[in-house]
Design a protein around this nucleic acid. Structure first.
Lengths: 196, 196
DNA sequence: ACCTGAACACCGTTCAAGT
DNA sequence: ACCTGAACACCGTTCAAGT
């Protein structure tokens, strides 16, 4: 209904930002925080809330997008200062750390978002980050050929199942060890696909 | 309040089974089927429903437990007719297939169940199956030492994120290829832990 | 001991009325 | 163009009354 490129009226802009700000805080604390409570905390009426976010999924996706951009940015910086395989591994470590501190938000995503929309968000900055890391490693010969972004995202899918309470550092480390080994070239059982 | 070992009165028993039966059907179709609708479809009042299942999580866990037992059983049979690594792989393939046909139920689990309860269900028959497969493979030398059940369950965690619509067979296959390679002994980058 | 269904609280969503 | 808050539908949960 509204032109996405037209700038918002200043009060609307402020409201929108305030909602996102409050939602980040509330959803991080608990993934099932009610929209009503978020609207109230943000100091807007329900109608206003729904003008900006037509449903829970829209809000969660927006908050998530904001957050995930930060992690994605780190990838390039890591590649500049480290060999590709170390950069990949460290980036995955950071992703794990991020997943743990934002467990509530991840929970909100799982509960509110369809498979399709989950994919489409990943198709944003996360994809760029992963494919950059992937390309650098493939070129350096530190991972097997033919892996795509979704292979990686699925392989680390277990991160979102780790309990943030408890020994998550060790758990995540073990998972990433296994996964990284699966990524490397010439893993046994699959003779290294020597292409052209 | 009730003694878990005392047998239920026959009508109560029948109600309980009917609820589970209906819930399996409804939740498989859609993970967010309402408890009210399930109770109604099962032909019981709300009070009866809550007598058997104090909340959504309790119901979902119970339905899930029933289903997962079937997959777990297959593990032993596979080990009898195949070499350990093929048995493991084929079992994972079946798990993937199962995850896809029961996508709604998996969705219901994700939405309704806490991390803790998710773990505790896995600690049931699934754990037995995985650890049997793991032990056989470790002994045969087809996987690295020191992997535990949770390593495996986390490594295949991505299965639950695959979209059942679309090319899930190929996706799951690729994921399991990566993961199995990560499991094998002597994967590069981790010099084979030669123990004792 | 178990079942029923009305009743309650709460949440997501809509909409007429405002500025 | 945007905001407000009352109103509605629906869901989870409880409980007094039944057998």
């Amino acid at each position: 209904v509204r032109d996405r490129n037209e700038p918002l009226r200043s009060d609307a802009q402020r409201n929108r930002e305030r909602i996102i700000e409050v939602a980040l805080e509330a959803l991080t604390r608990s993934g099932d925080a009610s929209l009503t409570s978020i609207a109230k905390q943000a100091g807007v009426g329900q109608g206003t809330f729904y003008r900006h976010f037509p449903n829970r999924e829209a809000l969660v996706l927006e908050v998530y997008r904001h957050e995930v951009e930060q992690v994605a940015e780190a990838a390039c910086r890591l590649l500049e200062t480290r060999p590709p395989d170390q950069a990949l591994r460290e980036w995955l470590d950071r992703l794990a750390q991020y997943a743990m501190t934002k467990a509530g938000l991840a929970d909100a995503m799982r509960r509110a978002c369809s498979h399709d929309s989950l994919m489409s968000v990943s198709r944003g900055p996360l994809t760029t980050a992963v494919s950059t890391l992937l390309a650098a490693n493939e070129q350096a010969g530190t991972i097997r050929h033919g892996l795509d972004v979704e292979d990686v995202l699925l392989a680390i899918g277990g991160l979102w199942q780790i309990d943030p309470k408890g020994d998550w550092r060790q758990r995540a480390g073990r998972l990433l060890d296994v996964v990284m080994d699966g990524f490397r070239t010439g893993a046994p059982g699959r003779p290294a696909d020597v292409v052209d």
